[in-house]
Design a protein around this nucleic acid. Structure first.
Lengths: 234, 234
DNA sequence: ACAAAAGTGTTCTTTATACACCCATGG
DNA sequence: CCATGGGTGTATAAAGAACACTTTTGT
C-alpha cells in the first residue's frame, strides 16, 4: 500500500470561496462547522479529498453536496499549507473560488447543511485561516476579472447593462462612468442584445443581453481591459 | 495522532520548474530520477513535503539541496492531483516555478545530483505528468511576465537592454521592435543606467542597467504592459 | 573604411478618459 | 407632466505600433 516508504502522508482538503451576486451586492456562502473544535463557528465550504478523486473532483463533490449545484465556474487559486493551520491535525487545503448565480442557487438549496449568504462587509470571523483565504480569493477575483470576462458567471443568462455595471462596481467597490462602461463592454463583442426589456428596476426599462457563447469561449484567455485604472485596486 | 478519523492521508510532493537564462536562451533545469520506476529518466526537481514544513518550505529545501541556491524567486502555480499521476503511489504535487540567474547557479553547482540545463526545444521526455507541468509553467511564465517585471530575476544584477530584449524574445519566441522595446522598458522607471558598458557583445558596447529596487517592489503588482500584443501568445 | 550592434525620433493609429444631453415611461 | 433611470455622442489626452537613420569602434 505504502510504496514510498519513510515519507509522511498528510490530510488534504479543499475549501471553496463561493461568490454570489444578488443583483445589488456580492455575497459569500458560508456554513457552520459541524465538529469540534470551533463547532458552529462559520467556515468556508470544504471537505477532505478521497483516495480516488482529484482536488477538482473533491471541490465539485463538496460544492454539490452543500449547495446542490453542478457545473459551476471554479478555479483553483492557492494551496494553503502552513503546518499549524488546522489545530486538530495537519491538513493541507487546496483553495478554489467559485462563481454562481445566486438565484439559481436558491432554487436548489441543500436543506441539510443550511449554508448562508453574507455580504462581504458583514462577514463573521471564520475558523482557522479561512479569513486569509477569503482575502486572497477577493484579490484573485479582482485580478482575474480585470482581464477576463469571468464575472458573467455570477449573472443569470439574461442580464442588463446596468446590472452588469452594478456587479463590477460591487467587485471593485467603486463607481464607473456609465457611458464608458457600457461602451467598453459592448465593444468586446461578447454581448448579444435581446429584444426584451427588464422593467423591474426602472420605468423606461433596460434591454436584456446574453453572452455570445462562442465568442466568449474564444476570447476568454485574451487580455481584455475591462476595468479602468486596474492598478489602483491592488 | 490521526484525529480526523476515517479520512485518507496522501503523499504530497513539490515539483519545481526551474527556468534559467544564459544570455541567449531560456533553459530548464532537470535531474535524473534516482529510483524505480523510470529510474534515470529525466524529471523535474522535487521532493516530498515533511510533516513540519509548508509546501513553500519544502520547495525551497529541495531547491537548495539540488542546486545550492537560496532566496530564489519562486511562485506556486498549480496543484497536480490526478489520482493516477504517480504510478507508484498516489501523490499530490504542488508545482512551483523558479527563476534563477544561470551563472550564479553554475558557481554553486551541487555535485551530488548533477542536474543539467536543457534548452526548451531540446528537452527530453519527462516522467509522469512533468511534461504537462512544464507546459503550464511556460504558459504561466508568459502570462505573468506580460504584466509584471518578473523576468529580471533571470538576469544578473547588471544587464544591458539588448540582453533584456533577448530574454523577452526567448520567453515569447518572437522578435520585438528594438526602439519600442527599449522605450517601453525605460518608461517603466524600473531601470537605472550605470556608467559602465558591456563590451563583450558588440564593438560599440551597451550600457549596463540595474533594477531600481524600491521602485521595483512598489510597482511589482501594477499592470505593466511589457509585451506588445500579448493576446497572441495564449 | 566597413561591418556589426547600439541608440534615438517621428508619425500615425488606437484606446482611454472626461464630460452633457435626450429618451421612454409609470406614476 | 415630471421624476427616474436608460441610453447615446464628442472632444481631448495618452499609449501603442510602425518605421529609418546615425553613432561607435574593433578589425
Amino acid at each position: 500500500m505504502h510504496k514510498y516508504s519513510g515519507e509522511t502522508r498528510l490530510l488534504v482538503a479543499t475549501d471553496c470561496i463561493i461568490f454570489g451576486f444578488d443583483g445589488a451586492n456580492i455575497k459569500l456562502l458560508l456554513v457552520q462547522r459541524g465538529l469540534e473544535p470551533e463547532k458552529h463557528k462559520w467556515s468556508l465550504i470544504g471537505g477532505f479529498i478521497k483516495p480516488t478523486e482529484s482536488p477538482e473532483d473533491a471541490a465539485n463533490r463538496v460544492l454539490e453536496l452543500r449547495t446542490g449545484l453542478k457545473n459551476v465556474y471554479m478555479e483553483q487559486f492557492q494551496v494553503f499549507g502552513k503546518p499549524e493551520r488546522d489545530p486538530v491535525e495537519r491538513t493541507l487545503s487546496v483553495a478554489y473560488f467559485a462563481l454562481i448565480d445566486i438565484h439559481q442557487y436558491e432554487a436548489q438549496l441543500s436543506e441539510e447543511y443550511h449554508p448562508e449568504w453574507f455580504l462581504l462587509d458583514e462577514m463573521p470571523d471564520l475558523i482557522f485561516d479561512h479569513n486569509e483565504m477569503v482575502r486572497l480569493a477577493k484579490r484573485q477575483l479582482r485580478y482575474k476579472a480585470a482581464l477576463h470576462p469571468i464575472l458573467f458567471q455570477l449573472l443569470p443568462e439574461k442580464f442588463t447593462i446596468p446590472q452588469l455595471q452594478a456587479l463590477y462596481e460591487g467587485v471593485y467597490q467603486t463607481k464607473f462612468d456609465d457611458r464608458n462602461f457600457s461602451r467598453k463592454l459592448l465593444s468586446t463583442g461578447l454581448l448579444v442584445k435581446l429584444p426584451e426589456k427588464d422593467k423591474l428596476s426602472s420605468k423606461k426599462g433596460a434591454f436584456y443581453y446574453k453572452l455570445d457563447q462562442s465568442h466568449y469561449e474564444e476570447n476568454f484567455e485574451s487580455f481584455l481591459n475591462l476595468v479602468p485604472n486596474p492598478d489602483k485596486f491592488f
